[in-house]
Each structure stands twice: as C-alpha cells, then as structure tokens.
Simulated scan of single mutants.
Amino acid sequence: MKATQLYKDFFNSKKSGGLVLITFTLISLFFANSSFGDFYIHSWETKIGGLSFEHWINDGLMTVFFLLIGLELEREIYKGELSHVKDALPPIFSAFGGMVFPAAIYLLFNLGTITQAGSGIPTATDIAFALGILSLLGNRVPTSLKVFLTALAVIDDLGAIIIIAVFYTKTLLWSNLLIALGIFVLLLVLNRLKVNNLIPYLVGGIVMWYFMLHSGVHATITGVLLAFAIPFGDGSKKSTSYLLQHFLHKPVAFIIMPIFALANTAIVINSDFSTVISQNYSLGIALGLIIGKPVGIFATLFIAVKLKLCSLPNEINWKSILGVGFLAGIGFTMSIFITLLAFEDKATIANSKFIILISSLIAGVIGYFILKYSLKEANEEL
C-alpha cells in the first residue's frame, strides 16, 4: 500500500492532534471540577447572535471538521484505499461490523426506553485519538496497518454522517432544506463548468450552512456536501480539493478539535460512579465501545475472509486486527457529538460524556498493549 504525501501529512496532523485533544480534555476536566467550575461551565452558554458559544462550536466550527472529513472521504474514493475494490473491502466489512455490533449491544439495554435514541453513540470512532495512540508505537507499525485504520475510521465517519442525517433529524422545514440543496446543486454545476476558484464554493457553502441550520437537518452535513462540490480534478497538488484539504489539516487538528474538547468535556465528575455506570445508557455505551467495536470489527472481517470475500492486507495479522478494533472503540469526538443530538436531559448528556471518556480510555489502553505485543511478535519473526 503506497502512502502519498497528503496521507502522511494527514496521519502526522491526526496523531499530533490526538495528543493535543488529550491535553485539552484534561484541562477542561480540571477547570470544570475546580472551585470556579460553575463559571467555566456556564461561560460556554454565553450567547452571541442568538446562539451560545457551545452551539456555534458544535454547529459552526464542526462544519469545518466535517468539510475535512468529506474531503478525506472523497480522496479515499477517487485515489485512496477505497478506489480499488480489493483494498476497500477489508475496511468496509470491518467498519460495518464495528457499527452494527455496538448499536445492537446498546439497544439490548435500551430498546423501548427513553434513551434508545443513543444507539448511535458507541458506533463512532475518533480518528485523531485512534491514530494518536497508534503513533505511540513508533516505526514498528507497518504502513498497511496505519492505512487500514485510517480507511476504517473514514468509513466509520461516513456511517456517522448517515446516522446523523437519517436518525437525528427531528423536524424538517422543507423550504429551507430545498434552498440549501438548491445551492448544493448550483455548486455542482460550477464544478462541472470547471470553475476552480475556491471563493464561490466557500461563499455558497456559508449560505447553504445558514439554510441547513434552519431546516432541521444538522448543519454540519453542509461540510460533507460542500466537500463533494469542490473540484477534485486529477487530485494533484495543484487541485482545489488538495489545496483546501492540505490547508485545513492543522487548523482542524490544533484549533477546532481542541476548542470542541474544551466546550464539550466541561463535565463535573459524579462521585457516585456506581450509580452512573449502572444506568442502561451507560452500560450500552461502555459495552458498545469496549466490546462491541472490537468484536464487530474482528468477527465481521474474519467471516468475510473465511468466505473469501476479501483477504487480510499485507503485513497485518489477526492480533493486529483485534488491536485496531479496540482503538476503534475510542469514540470521543463523534460519540460526544451524537450524544448532544440524541439526548436533551443535561444530566444524561453529562453522564454519557463521562462514560464515553472512561470507555474510550479503556479501549485505547487495551488496543495499545495488544498492538505492542503483536507487533513485537511480528518483528521477532522477521
């Protein structure tokens, strides 16, 4: 598997961004549980232009995050791991199992209850954290494993986008939605006319975001639509898509994601941990991320390989797949994001965020040690 320069830039920004995310999460938790915790938590509710800081971050800044996700997904489809069926099938099968199993586990505990809407929470993978943990293993990690995890996480993000669009859209205002989609079609026409100047797309994207925000569909979907409207061309370093994707890597990794972490991990840690973990939604999230993710990824790919629907990528063994499965159990950003859409009760949201943090930590640590052992074993065999 060939690693392009853009992929290397992407991997480096994501692994560094994961470490920055950890730092800012710890800072936010510290402030939230300090003597001025109330001030810190309520400061995110300060309103500007009718929306709170937190709202601007989750609906505004995160649209830029989704724009980058869309650009990465587009590149994977046209020139990356998803452009060849043979290479795409292993991460596709793995991602499918990694979404279905956690959702099933969650519903096992919550079906028919007021918290069943949270079934999408444990299906997500935080690519920045996952690659950040993988990077701690250094040069022992084969490129094929890095690419597999990246492709898996990108497909996972696509799944999360579909889940958000289909299951977390409550009330549709058709007039605004049709205007937003009309702007999207107009941008596609500009693409077909080979208009490569980025300004019309960005202006159109902002207007599309405004109408999408007031349509009932989550505004961040605008980022993905805009990504596929921006000209990809031949995918070279001079293409509009490449230039924008390259530009967005560091702002997203080192500005947008840390701000998201600060705003959404301002959690007061409940001293009665036993009560929090015993909640049905807590069990669904924890078991979904820690067990559902790795089992779903491993089992689905194992069955696909045994049925000869695909084969394991080069330099990757089953122990490494299991390790990657646990790393995929690091939900964090997308899991927290879906939590905000799934629940309205503040206590449920806060507890869910806390469980996501704890579960992601456990999954990440297990994944790290499995990979450390399996990669050491593989290197000794060489």
Rank of each mutant, 00 (worst) to 15 (best):
residue 67 L to E: 08
residue 67 L to W: 07
residue 69 I to N: 13
residue 69 I to K: 07
residue 70 G to K: 06
residue 73 L to P: 03
residue 73 L to C: 08
residue 74 E to D: 13
residue 76 E to C: 00
residue 77 I to W: 10
residue 77 I to D: 05
residue 78 Y to P: 02
residue 78 Y to Q: 13
residue 80 G to I: 07
residue 80 G to D: 08
residue 80 G to Y: 05
residue 82 L to F: 13
residue 83 S to N: 13
residue 83 S to K: 03
residue 84 H to Q: 15
residue 87 D to I: 08
residue 88 A to W: 07
residue 89 L to N: 02
residue 90 P to G: 02
residue 90 P to N: 08
residue 90 P to T: 08
residue 91 P to Q: 13
residue 92 I to E: 00
residue 92 I to V: 12
residue 94 S to I: 06
residue 94 S to T: 11
residue 96 F to D: 00
residue 96 F to M: 05
residue 99 M to Y: 01
residue 100 V to W: 01
residue 102 P to D: 14
residue 102 P to H: 14
residue 102 P to L: 13
residue 104 A to T: 14
residue 104 A to N: 03
residue 105 I to Y: 05
residue 105 I to V: 11
residue 106 Y to N: 04
residue 106 Y to P: 02
residue 106 Y to W: 08
residue 107 L to A: 08
residue 108 L to S: 10
residue 108 L to D: 02
residue 111 L to T: 07
residue 111 L to I: 10
residue 111 L to D: 03
residue 112 G to E: 11
residue 112 G to R: 09
residue 113 T to L: 09
residue 113 T to D: 11
residue 114 I to K: 15
residue 119 S to P: 00
residue 120 G to W: 09
residue 121 I to L: 01
residue 121 I to W: 03
residue 122 P to T: 11
residue 123 T to I: 15
residue 123 T to V: 15
residue 124 A to C: 03
residue 125 T to Q: 07
residue 126 D to T: 06
residue 128 A to K: 04
residue 129 F to Q: 07
residue 129 F to K: 08
residue 131 L to W: 06
residue 133 I to T: 12
residue 134 L to I: 14
residue 135 S to E: 09
residue 135 S to C: 07
residue 136 L to F: 11
residue 138 G to P: 07
residue 138 G to L: 11
residue 139 N to G: 13
residue 139 N to Q: 14
residue 140 R to W: 06
residue 141 V to R: 09
residue 143 T to W: 11
residue 145 L to C: 04
residue 145 L to E: 10
residue 145 L to F: 04
residue 145 L to A: 14
residue 146 K to T: 15
residue 149 L to N: 02
residue 149 L to Y: 03
residue 150 T to W: 00
residue 151 A to K: 00
residue 152 L to H: 04
residue 152 L to Q: 05
residue 154 V to W: 00
residue 156 D to K: 01
residue 157 D to E: 07
residue 160 A to D: 11
residue 160 A to V: 14
residue 161 I to S: 07
residue 162 I to T: 15
residue 163 I to N: 04
residue 163 I to Y: 07
residue 163 I to R: 08
residue 164 I to A: 11
residue 165 A to L: 07
residue 166 V to Y: 04
residue 167 F to G: 09
residue 168 Y to G: 03
residue 168 Y to S: 03
residue 170 K to G: 02
residue 170 K to T: 13
residue 171 T to R: 05
residue 172 L to D: 05
residue 172 L to S: 05
residue 172 L to Y: 05
residue 175 S to C: 07
residue 175 S to V: 15
residue 177 L to N: 03
residue 177 L to H: 02
residue 178 L to A: 12
residue 178 L to K: 04
residue 178 L to V: 15
residue 178 L to F: 13
residue 180 A to R: 08
residue 181 L to P: 00
residue 182 G to H: 04
residue 184 F to V: 14
residue 185 V to D: 06
residue 186 L to V: 13
residue 187 L to F: 09
residue 187 L to H: 07
residue 187 L to P: 09
residue 187 L to V: 12
residue 187 L to R: 10
residue 188 L to A: 03
residue 189 V to W: 06
residue 192 R to L: 06
residue 192 R to Y: 04
residue 193 L to P: 00
residue 193 L to G: 02
residue 193 L to S: 03
residue 193 L to K: 14
